[in-house]
Design a protein around this nucleic acid. Structure first.
Length: 210
DNA sequence: CATATGATTCCA
DNA sequence: GGAATCATATGA
Protein backbone atom coordinates (compact mmCIF):
# COMPACT_ATOMS: atom_id res chain seq x y z
CA UNK A 1 0.00 0.00 0.00
CA UNK A 2 1.32 3.37 -0.98
CA UNK A 3 2.36 5.67 1.81
CA UNK A 4 0.39 8.86 2.19
CA UNK A 5 2.34 12.10 1.67
CA UNK A 6 3.66 13.26 5.02
CA UNK A 7 1.97 16.66 4.70
CA UNK A 8 -1.45 15.00 4.92
CA UNK A 9 -0.72 13.88 8.46
CA UNK A 10 1.33 16.86 9.58
CA UNK A 11 0.94 17.82 13.22
CA UNK A 12 0.75 21.58 12.91
CA UNK A 13 1.97 22.06 16.48
CA UNK A 14 5.37 20.60 15.53
CA UNK A 15 6.03 22.83 12.53
CA UNK A 16 9.42 24.57 12.57
CA UNK A 17 9.28 28.31 12.09
CA UNK A 18 11.63 29.67 9.40
CA UNK A 19 14.17 32.25 10.55
CA UNK A 20 15.17 35.53 8.98
CA UNK A 21 18.30 34.28 7.18
CA UNK A 22 16.25 31.72 5.27
CA UNK A 23 14.69 34.49 3.15
CA UNK A 24 17.93 36.14 2.05
CA UNK A 25 17.99 34.49 -1.37
CA UNK A 26 17.09 35.30 -4.97
CA UNK A 27 13.34 35.11 -5.72
CA UNK A 28 13.94 32.31 -8.23
CA UNK A 29 15.53 30.16 -5.52
CA UNK A 30 12.98 31.07 -2.87
CA UNK A 31 10.00 30.39 -5.18
CA UNK A 32 11.04 26.75 -5.29
CA UNK A 33 12.00 26.60 -1.62
CA UNK A 34 8.59 27.95 -0.54
CA UNK A 35 6.66 25.14 -2.25
CA UNK A 36 5.50 22.76 0.47
CA UNK A 37 6.13 25.28 3.24
CA UNK A 38 3.33 26.24 5.61
CA UNK A 39 1.87 29.68 6.20
CA UNK A 40 0.26 30.11 9.62
CA UNK A 41 -2.12 32.92 10.54
CA UNK A 42 -3.12 32.91 14.19
CA UNK A 43 -6.25 34.64 15.32
CA UNK A 44 -7.60 36.58 12.34
CA UNK A 45 -8.67 40.10 13.40
CA UNK A 46 -12.13 39.61 11.86
CA UNK A 47 -12.66 36.36 13.78
CA UNK A 48 -10.80 36.74 17.10
CA UNK A 49 -11.77 33.32 18.43
CA UNK A 50 -11.08 31.27 15.32
CA UNK A 51 -8.30 28.65 15.41
CA UNK A 52 -5.01 29.32 13.55
CA UNK A 53 -5.30 28.90 9.82
CA UNK A 54 -2.54 26.80 8.24
CA UNK A 55 -2.01 26.51 4.48
CA UNK A 56 0.50 24.41 2.59
CA UNK A 57 1.93 26.49 -0.28
CA UNK A 58 1.59 24.81 -3.69
CA UNK A 59 2.04 27.64 -6.25
CA UNK A 60 4.49 30.55 -6.40
CA UNK A 61 5.89 33.12 -8.81
CA UNK A 62 9.23 34.93 -8.75
CA UNK A 63 9.43 38.73 -9.21
CA UNK A 64 13.01 39.82 -9.55
CA UNK A 65 13.46 43.53 -9.04
CA UNK A 66 13.42 46.69 -11.21
CA UNK A 67 14.80 45.11 -14.38
CA UNK A 68 11.93 42.58 -14.34
CA UNK A 69 9.25 44.59 -16.16
CA UNK A 70 6.46 42.33 -14.84
CA UNK A 71 7.30 43.38 -11.28
CA UNK A 72 5.96 46.34 -9.35
CA UNK A 73 9.62 47.04 -8.63
CA UNK A 74 9.84 48.47 -12.17
CA UNK A 75 8.38 51.74 -10.81
CA UNK A 76 11.30 52.14 -8.44
CA UNK A 77 10.96 53.03 -4.77
CA UNK A 78 7.50 54.54 -4.21
CA UNK A 79 5.10 54.43 -1.29
CA UNK A 80 3.54 51.30 -2.72
CA UNK A 81 6.86 49.50 -3.23
CA UNK A 82 8.33 50.54 0.11
CA UNK A 83 7.86 47.06 1.56
CA UNK A 84 8.95 45.37 -1.67
CA UNK A 85 12.26 47.21 -1.51
CA UNK A 86 12.60 46.61 2.23
CA UNK A 87 14.04 43.79 4.30
CA UNK A 88 13.61 40.16 3.27
CA UNK A 89 11.14 37.91 5.08
CA UNK A 90 8.32 40.46 5.23
CA UNK A 91 4.80 40.50 3.80
CA UNK A 92 4.30 42.65 0.70
CA UNK A 93 0.51 42.90 0.31
CA UNK A 94 -0.93 44.91 -2.58
CA UNK A 95 -4.46 45.71 -3.78
CA UNK A 96 -5.40 44.90 -7.37
CA UNK A 97 -8.36 45.21 -9.76
CA UNK A 98 -10.29 47.22 -7.20
CA UNK A 99 -11.11 44.12 -5.15
CA UNK A 100 -8.29 41.71 -4.36
CA UNK A 101 -5.33 41.67 -2.01
CA UNK A 102 -2.30 39.64 -3.06
CA UNK A 103 0.27 38.23 -0.64
CA UNK A 104 4.00 38.19 -1.39
CA UNK A 105 7.11 37.24 0.56
CA UNK A 106 9.97 39.71 0.20
CA UNK A 107 13.41 38.21 -0.27
CA UNK A 108 16.90 38.64 -1.63
CA UNK A 109 18.00 41.42 0.68
CA UNK A 110 17.00 45.03 1.35
CA UNK A 111 17.09 47.29 -1.71
CA UNK A 112 16.86 44.52 -4.33
CA UNK A 113 13.09 44.55 -4.78
CA UNK A 114 12.73 40.77 -5.01
CA UNK A 115 9.55 38.98 -3.92
CA UNK A 116 7.64 35.73 -4.31
CA UNK A 117 3.90 35.89 -5.05
CA UNK A 118 1.96 33.13 -3.27
CA UNK A 119 -0.67 32.03 -5.80
CA UNK A 120 -2.25 28.98 -4.17
CA UNK A 121 -2.27 26.75 -1.12
CA UNK A 122 -3.88 23.64 0.32
CA UNK A 123 -6.10 24.08 3.40
CA UNK A 124 -4.22 22.18 6.11
CA UNK A 125 -5.84 23.29 9.37
CA UNK A 126 -8.33 25.83 10.64
CA UNK A 127 -10.46 26.12 7.49
CA UNK A 128 -14.09 25.26 6.85
CA UNK A 129 -14.61 22.14 4.76
CA UNK A 130 -14.21 22.89 1.08
CA UNK A 131 -12.28 26.12 1.53
CA UNK A 132 -10.48 27.15 -1.66
CA UNK A 133 -7.06 28.79 -1.62
CA UNK A 134 -6.32 28.57 -5.35
CA UNK A 135 -5.51 31.91 -6.96
CA UNK A 136 -3.69 34.80 -5.29
CA UNK A 137 -6.87 36.72 -4.44
CA UNK A 138 -8.65 33.72 -2.96
CA UNK A 139 -5.51 32.62 -1.09
CA UNK A 140 -5.17 35.98 0.65
CA UNK A 141 -8.88 36.24 1.45
CA UNK A 142 -9.08 32.69 2.84
CA UNK A 143 -5.98 33.30 4.97
CA UNK A 144 -7.37 36.56 6.32
CA UNK A 145 -4.51 38.58 4.82
CA UNK A 146 -5.13 42.17 3.75
CA UNK A 147 -3.09 45.34 3.40
CA UNK A 148 -3.21 45.72 7.18
CA UNK A 149 -0.43 43.12 7.16
CA UNK A 150 1.71 44.86 4.55
CA UNK A 151 5.19 45.14 6.03
CA UNK A 152 4.60 42.45 8.66
CA UNK A 153 7.69 40.44 9.72
CA UNK A 154 6.96 36.86 8.59
CA UNK A 155 9.04 35.34 11.38
CA UNK A 156 6.72 36.91 13.99
CA UNK A 157 3.16 36.37 15.25
CA UNK A 158 0.45 36.40 14.12
CA UNK A 159 1.54 35.53 10.57
CA UNK A 160 4.61 33.39 9.98
CA UNK A 161 6.11 30.74 7.71
CA UNK A 162 7.17 27.21 8.66
CA UNK A 163 9.47 24.68 6.96
CA UNK A 164 8.04 22.02 4.68
CA UNK A 165 7.70 18.42 5.78
CA UNK A 166 8.50 16.86 2.42
CA UNK A 167 10.06 17.81 -0.89
CA UNK A 168 7.50 18.29 -3.69
CA UNK A 169 8.10 17.51 -7.35
CA UNK A 170 8.01 20.84 -9.16
CA UNK A 171 6.57 21.86 -12.54
CA UNK A 172 7.55 25.17 -14.14
CA UNK A 173 5.45 27.48 -16.36
CA UNK A 174 5.38 31.14 -17.45
CA UNK A 175 3.85 33.64 -15.02
CA UNK A 176 0.13 34.47 -15.09
CA UNK A 177 -1.39 37.85 -15.97
CA UNK A 178 1.76 39.67 -17.06
CA UNK A 179 1.29 39.78 -20.85
CA UNK A 180 2.10 43.51 -20.83
CA UNK A 181 5.70 42.81 -19.79
CA UNK A 182 7.15 41.99 -23.23
CA UNK A 183 9.95 39.44 -23.11
CA UNK A 184 9.60 39.24 -19.33
CA UNK A 185 6.11 37.75 -19.75
CA UNK A 186 7.62 34.57 -21.15
CA UNK A 187 10.11 33.85 -18.37
CA UNK A 188 9.39 30.42 -16.81
CA UNK A 189 9.15 31.81 -13.31
CA UNK A 190 5.95 30.16 -12.03
CA UNK A 191 6.40 27.08 -9.88
CA UNK A 192 3.78 24.55 -8.81
CA UNK A 193 3.64 21.38 -6.75
CA UNK A 194 3.14 18.89 -9.59
CA UNK A 195 1.13 16.54 -7.36
CA UNK A 196 -1.30 19.11 -5.97
CA UNK A 197 -4.93 19.44 -7.06
CA UNK A 198 -5.13 22.92 -5.48
CA UNK A 199 -3.16 24.82 -8.13
CA UNK A 200 -4.90 27.85 -9.69
CA UNK A 201 -4.26 27.00 -13.33
CA UNK A 202 -2.79 23.55 -13.93
CA UNK A 203 -0.45 23.62 -16.93
CA UNK A 204 -1.62 21.78 -20.04
CA UNK A 205 2.01 20.97 -20.42
CA UNK A 206 4.77 22.06 -18.11
CA UNK A 207 7.67 23.85 -19.77
CA UNK A 208 10.09 22.41 -17.26
CA UNK A 209 10.69 20.32 -14.18
CA UNK A 210 12.26 21.24 -10.90
C1' DC B 1 -6.22 67.29 -11.91
C1' DA B 2 -7.48 63.50 -15.44
C1' DT B 3 -6.87 59.19 -17.19
C1' DA B 4 -5.47 54.34 -18.06
C1' DT B 5 -4.81 49.99 -16.30
C1' DG B 6 -3.75 46.04 -13.43
C1' DA B 7 0.86 39.91 -10.29
C1' DT B 8 -8.00 38.77 -10.52
C1' DT B 9 -12.40 36.69 -9.79
C1' DC B 10 -17.06 35.88 -10.82
C1' DC B 11 -21.03 35.45 -13.68
C1' DA B 12 -23.45 34.81 -18.20
C1' DG C 1 -16.99 37.05 -23.30
C1' DG C 2 -17.36 40.91 -20.07
C1' DA C 3 -18.20 43.44 -15.69
C1' DA C 4 -16.82 44.78 -11.16
C1' DT C 5 -14.07 48.44 -8.80
C1' DC C 6 -10.17 51.46 -6.97
C1' DA C 7 -5.17 52.29 -5.80
C1' DT C 8 -1.34 53.55 -8.24
C1' DA C 9 1.42 55.49 -11.71
C1' DT C 10 1.86 58.76 -15.24
C1' DG C 11 1.27 62.82 -17.86
C1' DA C 12 -0.97 67.43 -18.58
Amino acid sequence: MRRRPDFENVNTSTLRRLDHAWFARDALVLSRALLGCYLVHERGPDEPDSPPRVARIVETEAYRGPKDLASHARAGLTRRTRTLYGEEGHAYVFFIYGMHDCFNVTCGGAGRGHAVLIRAGEPTAGFAAGARLDGPGRFSRAMGISRRLDGHDLTANPLYLCARTGRPRIDVTPRVGVAYAGEWADKPWRFIDAASSHVSRPPRKAVGRG
